[in-house]
Computed example of a mutant assay.
Amino acid sequence: MRWFGFGFNAFAQICVQEKSDKEESSSAVRVPTQLKNHVGRSKIRASWSRTASLFLDEDRRVRLAGFSASISGESLGPAVLDTRGCEDAVISETHLTLAFPDRIESWDLQSKDEAPSWRTEIVHRSQSSDVHLPLVPGGYVASEPPIFRPLPSHLQAKSLALGGGHAILLTAAGAVYTWGQGSHGQLGHGGLIPEEEPRTVEALWGMSMRSVAAGGWHSVCIGDGGDLYVWGWNESGQLGLPSRGLRKTSRQKSDLQAGGLCGSVGTCPAEDPHEEVFISIQAFPALVDVSPTCEIRTVSCGSRHTAAVTTTGCLYTWGWGEYGQLGHQTTASLDEPQCVEFFRNENLHVVDVVCGPWNTFAAAVEKEVLDLKNVPESPL
């Protein structure tokens, strides 16, 4: 399995690039680029300026790339931090949280303390109780202090995703709960008000979900049947629904390109009498048809973009594309899911995707490998 990255790269969290006369060229990777030394089983987590990679085939160490990556001799700091035997990791701009077989630790990356800022022991753990960060026994770890936040035990949380200021939780029974900031409809309750406590997304009640993800101001989930549901802010088309801003920009570019046809003699085409419907905020879950021929396998959200992998190994992206994070080798934004042709052209089958706020990381295998064994399960 190989990992590729594209999008925001100002801190070399994807790859080290040579400096160019054009400032933006060194801060963006527009063509999916293979990450160095990322061959084999591994996990990737990303924040705005950092990338944490957990390598599963060797001694299960975590390596950090991006801002202050050389903070210690092993590219991960504080200097006393030993990541051998790590099973999972999450990273934010201020903290790195690591899960080990017997404990969970959260380290302040801006501190020189020789002890974690938060730690809990795991007692009498069974194989069926694997930790899937940011969930931890009794609650979850947040991206900023207080690091540990409790959760009601009756929720029976299966997975949890954190957005810019909200959270989305999936229960073992397939129900979805959200809480936090709601100013952009990202909670899915039909309003724009915050929720202090987990509240079920009633529009999804009775439909079993199997995966959830959260962006800066939007949320998505995958149903048991492989359907994709989205809600929240759609300013950059991150929901895959018609965005007024994107359509207006596209129309202006078309008008400029067709400027020679529009003169003082009135040769411009007449406007469409049918007014388009645009979605700025989608406060209830909406179904998005990513691919009519296959189901969605996994999904991830950036700050204002979304990426989904289908059961046939295709990667689709949409939303904000200013740094090339959509993988289409342009900086254009999209309000419709579009297949990333790079992987198809390279005869690669995508098996996983992880979005940072302004970039995207995709894991892929050679299609020939699929003829010899089953598609590997997502390591996340």
Rank of each mutant, 00 (worst) to 15 (best):
Trp48His: 09
Ser42Met: 14
Thr97Phe: 02
Lys43Asp: 12
Leu98Ser: 03
Arg125Val: 06
Ile104Glu: 02
Asp88Tyr: 02
Gly66Ala: 00
Ile44Trp: 04
Ala89Trp: 04
Phe55Ile: 08
Val131Asp: 02
Glu93Pro: 06
Gly77Trp: 03
Gly77Cys: 11
His132Leu: 12
Trp118Ala: 10
Lys112Arg: 11
Ser117Gln: 12
Phe55Gln: 12
Ser126Gln: 09
Thr97Arg: 03
Val39Tyr: 07
Leu54Gly: 10
Val131Lys: 11
Arg103Met: 11
Asp113Gly: 15
Ala115Arg: 09
Ile91Gln: 08
Glu87Thr: 01
Arg50Pro: 02
Glu114His: 07
Lys112Ser: 11
Ser68Gln: 07
Phe55Asn: 10
Arg50His: 02
Pro116His: 03
Arg45Ile: 00
Arg61Cys: 03
Pro116Cys: 03
Val131Gly: 07
Pro78Ala: 15
Ser68Thr: 01
Pro101Thr: 08
Ala46Pro: 04
Ser42Lys: 01
Phe67Cys: 06
Ala46Phe: 08
Ser72Gln: 08
Thr94Glu: 14
Ala65Glu: 01
Arg63His: 13
Ile91Asn: 07
Val131Arg: 15
Ala79His: 10
Asp130Gln: 11
His132Met: 08
Arg50Tyr: 06
Leu133His: 02
Gln110Glu: 11
Glu105Ala: 14
Ile104Ala: 09
Ser72Asp: 12
Asp57Glu: 14
Ala65Leu: 08
Glu87Met: 04
Arg84Thr: 07
Trp48Tyr: 10
Ala52Ser: 01
Ile122Thr: 07
Phe55Arg: 13
Val80His: 12
Arg119Ser: 14
Cys86Gln: 02
Leu98Lys: 05
Leu109Gln: 09
Ser53Met: 10
Val39Ala: 15
Pro116Asn: 01
Arg125His: 04
Ala115Cys: 09
Arg103Cys: 12
Glu105Phe: 04
Pro78Gly: 14
Trp118Val: 08
Glu114Asn: 14
Thr97Cys: 14
Ser68Ile: 01
Leu133Val: 00
Glu93Asp: 15
Ser117Lys: 08
Val80Gly: 12
Arg60Tyr: 07
Gly73Met: 09
Ser111Asp: 14
Thr120Tyr: 03
Thr97Ile: 12
Ile91Met: 05
Glu87Lys: 04
Ser49Leu: 06
Gly66Arg: 03
Pro116Ala: 00
Asp88Glu: 06
Asp130Ala: 15
Asp130Arg: 15
Asp113Val: 02
Glu74Gly: 08
Phe55Glu: 14
Asp59Phe: 00
Arg45Tyr: 01
Ile71Trp: 02
Ala79Pro: 00
